[in-house]
Simulated scan of single mutants.
Amino acid sequence: MVRPPLTPEQLAAGKRLGAYLRQARGERKPTEVAHAAAISPETLRKIETGRMATPAFTTIAALAQVLDVPLDQLAHVCLTPMDLSKTA
């Protein structure tokens, strides 16, 4: 099964998510955060730079827990204003 290419909106959401997680990490070392979340430092680097635009839910849940960020906050970071208006 071939995965369809990501849309520009999905790529933009991945960049927003990565930037938010990078900011939430603050001064903590990437290796420390990656180890605590049970992911590789390279995976964390790819997420933070937007090169991995659609990481697995379990990866994001682990990062949210390690960084003490509510999952619903991460969802809002990824959603566009149009997406948010659909849920209201």
Rank of each mutant, 00 (worst) to 15 (best):
L44I: 05
G50A: 06
G18D: 03
G14C: 06
A24I: 04
T43R: 12
H35T: 14
P41N: 14
G26T: 11
Y20T: 02
R22K: 15
A36T: 04
R45T: 13
P55C: 00
L44S: 09
K46F: 12
E48C: 12
G14A: 06
R45P: 00
I39R: 07
L21E: 06
I47Q: 06
A19V: 11
G50P: 10
V33S: 03
G26N: 08
K15Q: 14
R22T: 02
R51L: 12
P41M: 04
R22M: 11
E27G: 02
G50C: 08
T43N: 08
T31D: 09
I39V: 15
G18I: 04
A24Q: 15
P30A: 11
A36Q: 13
R16A: 03
I39A: 02
F57Y: 10
R28C: 01
A24E: 13
Q23I: 05
F57M: 11
A19R: 14
I47H: 07
E42D: 13
R45H: 15
M52I: 05
R45E: 05
E32K: 10
Q23A: 15
K29H: 14
P30E: 04
T49E: 06
L21R: 06
P55K: 01
T54P: 00
A24H: 03
E27A: 15
A19E: 14
P30F: 00
T49M: 10
E48S: 08
L17V: 02
L21M: 11
L17Q: 04
K15G: 00
L17N: 05
A37P: 10
I39Y: 03
T54E: 14
G26K: 08
I47A: 03
Y20R: 13
E27P: 00
G18P: 13
P30Y: 00
E27F: 01
A13N: 09
A37G: 12
A37T: 08
A56I: 00
S40A: 11
L44Y: 08
H35V: 04
R25D: 07
R22F: 06
A36I: 04
G26M: 07
A37I: 10
A34M: 10
K46E: 14
A37F: 09
M52Y: 05
P41Y: 00
T49V: 01
G14V: 06
F57C: 01
E42S: 15
